[in-house]
């Protein structure tokens, strides 16, 4: 059981994490904007996360924390 959390207001919406996720569970949150005015990312199927931290490794803004 792994958990990925986003510091949503630090996200700049580059979506590099979306492409690198092997489970393809990271998605652009189209229903909201963060304080910077970007659509942040979200994980809706948290139970699918394997805690590989690929997303966090790729993130240029250190938005992501991964627990396992």
């Amino acid at each position: 059981m792994a958990k990925v959390t986003f510091n949503e207001n630090a996200c700049k919406g580059c979506y590099l994490c979306v492409d690198v996720c092997p489970k393809k569970i990271i998605k652009k949150a189209t229903d909201r904007l963060n304080v910077k005015g970007f659509n942040p990312v979200e994980v809706t199927e948290q139970d699918q996360c394997i805690g590989c931290a690929f997303c966090a490794t790729m993130c240029p803004d250190v938005v992501i924390t991964v627990e396992k």
């Binding site: 700049k12 919406g13 803004d61 992501i64 627990e67 396992k68």
Partner: peptide, 29 residues
């Protein structure tokens, strides 16, 4: 649960001013 990945201690809490997708942030980290 233990932490697999978090912001390194040697990086301050100041948000990067770099453009979206700029890899400066990765190298800083």
């Amino acid at each position: 649960m233990s932490i697999v990945f978090e912001k390194p201690h040697a990086l301050s809490d100041v948000g990067f001013h770099y453009c979206p997708g700029c890899t400066h942030g990765i190298v800083h980290r």
